[in-house]
Write a protein that binds this DNA or RNA. Structure first.
Lengths: 190, 190
DNA sequence: CGTCTATTTGAATGTACTCAAAAGCGGTGG
DNA sequence: CCACCGCTTTTGAGTACATTCAAATAGACG
């Protein structure tokens, strides 16, 4: 088991050897080929996933069949349908691999167990949720105040690595514009 | 000191008498008239506020002077410029009272102190952040997949209380549309 | 009552969309 | 290794949704 995920955790809390060992027993590794559907809307969302390598995205399909990308997750990111994972509701989103990916998964029951046995994880997930919240809030702010072109440039600047790993069509669906329109926009200097 | 805030906390964690008493010493009460500016963009964001009564909003003013409402906070909601509060950065948003309001405030240093002395608060804020995150993510999803009219109806259905306390102009700036356009939309049945 | 802001209405405009089609690119099989 | 297939990206014409600007009306507050 690569220790990328332990390093990710160590950014915010310190785990003893035993705690790290316990944690390792609660997470499982998976290697998934490109274009694998990890979660389907309507299903129970059983796993919180940490991306060791590769790239995934979560997306919503609306009543007209239009896809909206909710988030991308590349190396060192966490991804799940958080609302449905935490509240044991049927998933609203789909999650798929964009390329071959190696991930670590924590089931919902192991998540609860983790919080009970190692309360420090409350702090870890508090910080994780806090960062996710402020990131989403900034996204809302940009959606409200920037033009499509400005949002595109901001995305490229903020997430250059993601830009390398996903298609323009996927970026368009993240920004809330059509691929045709994205292609008319001035290309940003990277 | 009214115990609305202690009840809010009790929704997620149990505090002993002593812990509740300690908490009370770390929060301060304020009563603010209508249209009071609580936080100004550029200033340090020193406080996390819980709304006992009244209504507040946070908003961003972009380079063209356009206001975008980031969030409303009515009774039993928490509000601050979270990113700037947590990272001690200058505020990006303004926060003002919409009507006379009574709030409880926790300073950034008392926040840290609280987490250290009563670790249960890590859990409380984890849940608070988690709810805020999933709420923002749903908002992003709706912004991407719904028309302006659908978003308006969804807002009215989700937050009927907020609709009663704020102006249509403020709702328009939350939805990312102009007041003129909001006024042409079909009124939802409440 | 008078002033200030919010709300509504309408005309002209613009941003981003749809639809169609061509060009580019990557993966697969012969 | 290269030709074909499917998907992505680009380009363009016509359209629609939402904006800006202007002005009238309605409401709130001192």
């Amino acid at each position: 088991m690569p220790d990328s995920i332990l390093k990710n955790i160590a950014k915010h809390i310190h785990l003893s050897e035993e705690e790290a060992a316990l944690f390792s027993t609660l997470a499982s590794v998976k290697t998934l080929p490109k274009k694998t559907l990890l979660l389907q809307a309507g299903q129970e969302c059983r796993h919180l996933s940490y991306v060791h390598s590769g790239a995934l995205r979560s997306f919503y399909i609306d009543k007209d069949g239009k896809e909206s990308t909710i988030m991308f997750a590349v190396a060192d990111w966490w991804i799940t349908d958080m609302y449905c994972y935490l509240n044991r509701k049927p998933a609203m989103t789909h999650i798929e691999t964009i390329e071959e990916s190696m991930i670590f998964q924590i089931s919902r029951s192991n998540f609860d167990h983790l919080l009970e046995t190692i309360p420090k994880f409350e702090r870890f997930f508090r910080i994780l949720m806090q960062n996710a919240y402020t990131r989403e809030q900034l996204r809302v702010m940009e959606n409200l105040s920037l033009t499509a072109e400005e949002r595109y440039h901001s995305f490229v600047q903020k997430y250059p690595q993601i830009v390398r790993q996903v298609t323009k069509k996927q970026i368009a669906s993240y920004l809330g514009i059509t691929p045709e329109f994205l292609s008319t926009l001035k290309k940003p200097e990277i």
